[in-house]
Nucleic acid binder design. Structure first.
Lengths: 225, 225
DNA sequence: CGCCTCTTTGATAAAAGTCAATCAGGGTGG
DNA sequence: CCACCCTGATTGACTTTTATCAAAGAGGCG
């Protein structure tokens, strides 16, 4: 069960036992705490058990860009895997817990457990796809489409976790959403209000209720047509 | 020598010999030809020997987003590695040649050549970093900063290949640059003209000469300060 | 030479950002 | 327990940036 959260693999029972070796360690994070920061040595990847995190990169002039919001069952730390030190920050958006998968232990286990290599490759591939998707969002969608796509994406992922896709609590601020989507916090706020006025959603601070999923899909423009 | 172009590794001489097994096949691409397209089965990754390519993703409504321009020595096909089929297109910008590294052959060799796994991991990590960098550019830079950063990046990579960092030929159209940077082709064209008027560059159609690298760096805002 | 594609430039419109003033909630200390 | 304060959210007025539409110019190739 814990494994299901920490590495959602297609593994045999035996493989799972071996895996248990890897995920003994867990870390609890208070809201706002950093799982790792820019410049920290890269030692592990992390599976989120509960809570949520954001990842953000920082350029030479100190500017931040949120690159993702991570939910339970998702894996943090896949960027920077090619480097000695982290090129990004991972920060908890609420009280969270992650399980730690140490890279050196993983490399030791790899020969006995080839599925591990495959799995890591798959996870990194998914991260590349996710990032390209974000590039597409930032590069070619207008503000309202970006926010619509954001809400649909969140809804879909929460649904996968067994939560309602129609009603959820945003764990990030307008500022963070705006930064993620390449918009200002004011624009995000205005869009929420507009969506509510148009009957697409209901919104009260961070509580969101999706009233018309289809309209949101059409608006996002990622739908066929 | 070919290996240096096809997989710039830190390999022993022996490793290189084993590698030779992998990169026997080469593919030549005419300008505009697709190395692979969305939906094609994922069978290999490709090292560029000469020429240049663009990669682009496509959403459900058919909209395209250029996610990268690739130069000799760089590796194409790292996205989609988690999937059965390609989620993007790779298209040659000029007559080009790539060497083919078949994934099944690579998996066979992997046990004998652990460095291969490491190298693949490194390449995928680099791709994630590159994509996050692009997200940062699209999410937080203004148009002139984006174009400045684009030119500097290209200049730097060409320099690594032994070409002049001050003078080069753009292999892609204004349209493609604009799509990559989340701008219209007109905006890109105007920016080129403005940069030229301000003495930062000289530009004649696709021929670019960088006159003031430092000013360009300051403008890009990715510099310290 | 003439056609075709790509590029440049201008005029105008639309989108999103900036600045500023409330407004709402949540937590803290009197 | 309530008032206060602090942070985050909303809304408005206005500016800036970028897109859109349109027309003309530059190469390249048959």
């Amino acid at each position: 069960m814990l494994n299901a959260i920490c590495l959602p693999l297609g593994m045999s029972r035996n493989d799972v036992l071996v895996m248990d070796e890897l995920i003994k360690e867990r870390v609890r994070l208070a809201k706002g705490a950093a799982l790792y920061s820019l410049g920290d040595p890269v030692e592990a990847i992390y599976g989120i058990r509960y809570g949520s995190l954001k990842t953000q990169v920082q350029n030479a002039s100190g500017q931040m860009q949120v690159t993702g919001f991570l939910l339970p069952g998702e894996v943090v730390g896949l960027d920077s895997l090619s480097d000695e030190r982290h090129g990004s920050h991972a920060i908890s958006l609420e009280d969270s817990e992650v399980c730690v998968i140490h890279l050196d232990e993983m490399d030791e286990l790899a020969p006995r457990l080839p599925v591990l290599q495959t799995q890591l490759r798959r996870l990194m591939g998914k991260e590349i796809t996710r990032s390209h998707q974000l590039v597409m969002t930032l590069g070619s969608l207008r503000s309202e489409q970006r926010l619509a796509a954001f809400l649909l994406n969140l809804s879909q992922r929460l649904s996968t976790l067994g939560y309602s896709p129609h009603e959820f609590l945003l764990r990030m601020s307008r500022q963070e959403i705006g930064n993620f989507l390449g918009l200002t916090l004011e624009t995000v706020s205005r869009l929420f209000s507009r969506f509510a006025r148009d009957g697409l959603i209901r919104v009260q601070q961070r509580e969101v209720q999706i009233l018309d999923m289809d309209a949101l899909r059409v608006l996002s423009g990622t739908d066929c047509g």
